[in-house]
Design a protein around this nucleic acid. Structure first.
Length: 318
DNA sequence: AAATTTTCCAACCGCAAACCC
DNA sequence: AGGGTTTGCGGTTGGAAAATT
């Protein structure tokens, strides 16, 4: 495998940022050929550019191509990147094929500057998508930190579950998030029960496992309704994109195990740090919260997701 | 307002796969 | 088959812009 002659060794070849004039020259040259570049190596000379072919190719594919989408990444794109990264790793080019108009370079940059930092802030390893050990995590998942930063648990669970692209596990994370809010406050978010029901319906329909602790609590609150998928399905459409996208053969066992561990953390938190403080019973609190159905978002999202952001903001104020 | 630090992203570099002869 | 060339990819960097002190 011979090494490619590095154009950077070419004397006098310009490097660095492209000027408008150079861009124009390159675009016109390629358009004149109907978008058919031919040889990148020979292009600079043919187009009259004092650049190496490699630089021209990069400029075209990452910036000048007419089908490139500009602007901020949407929540949907962000979610898709995380999902794909969990399954593919740093295969930026492959990930880019799933996001129309986005280049591998742009996605890589966005990952490194935004998503990676968000995951780290939440105590999630951006490489493995697993919860970081407490000594490496900015948010230790103990009772105290969970009480102050409930989003950390949601993130940890969501990221862990993304590792196997399991929708059910994602819903588990959302369940845990809502349970935490209920446990952590006597003034819980309205519609909790409806959301628990929705999540449970989703879990039942996807055939995913649900931690026994949660199931017991939910059934004790509203037996009959909570396990009735059709009640929820009549009123809501649940997106199953991740399930559809999941690569065949991936197991949900690891993710379920992670969620169960987190669930145990929740249970421990409830029994030691809150329940012991008084006679308050989570179950009684849930029962008092029966509200009309509210729409539950399809899947866990990032901080920019207004639904979860609002809920988390509320919880911080409590 | 100026200096310093941090963030962001376009572009570069080198490796390796793919291609060509 | 094998060696040279081209292309594609992923990691990294440099510097402009923004934020902070």
């Amino acid at each position: 495998m011979g090494r490619s002659p590095c154009c950077s060794h070419d004397a006098g070849v310009k490097k660095g940022p492209w000027t408008e004039e150079e861009d124009k020259t390159l675009v016109e040259h390629i358009q004149k050929r109907g978008g058919n570049v031919g040889s990148w190596r020979g292009l600079p000379k043919a187009a009259g550019l004092n650049r190496c072919g490699k630089s021209c190719r990069l400029r075209w594919t990452n910036y000048l191509r007419p089908d490139i989408k500009r602007g901020n990444f949407s929540d949907e794109e962000e979610r898709l990147i995380i999902t794909l990264h969990a399954g593919l790793g740093n295969k930026w080019a492959t990930i880019a094929t799933h996001l129309e108009g986005r280049t591998d370079n742009e996605i890589k940059n966005y990952w490194n500057t935004h998503i990676r930092k968000k995951l780290l802030r939440m105590g999630v390893d951006p490489v493995t998508h697993q919860q970081l050990p407490p000594d490496q995590s900015h948010h230790h998942l103990n009772a105290t930190s969970i009480a102050h930063h409930p989003g950390a648990l949601l993130w940890a669970a969501a990221a862990a579950s993304l590792g196997s692209l399991d929708t059910g596990a994602l819903m588990q994370a959302q369940l845990l998030q809502q349970l935490l809010q209920a446990i952590g406050s006597n003034n819980c978010t309205s519609g909790l029960i409806a959301n628990l029901a929705a999540a449970n319906a989703m879990l039942n329909s996807s055939g995913s496992m649900i931690p026994n602790l949660l199931l017991d609590q939910m059934n004790c609150l509203q037996p009959g309704y909570l396990c009735n998928t059709s009640n929820f399905a009549e009123q809501h459409v649940v997106q199953q994109q991740l399930t559809n996208d999941a690569s065949p053969g991936t197991s949900s066992f690891a993710a379920a195990e992670q969620a169960d561990q987190l669930c145990n953390t929740t249970a421990s938190f409830a029994s030691h740090d809150v329940a012991s403080a008084g006679d308050w019973s989570p179950a009684q609190e849930f029962a008092g919260l029966l509200e009309p159905m509210m729409e539950v978002p399809d899947l866990c999202s990032l901080e920019s997701d207004s639904f979860w952001k609002d809920i988390l903001d509320d919880s911080y104020l409590l």
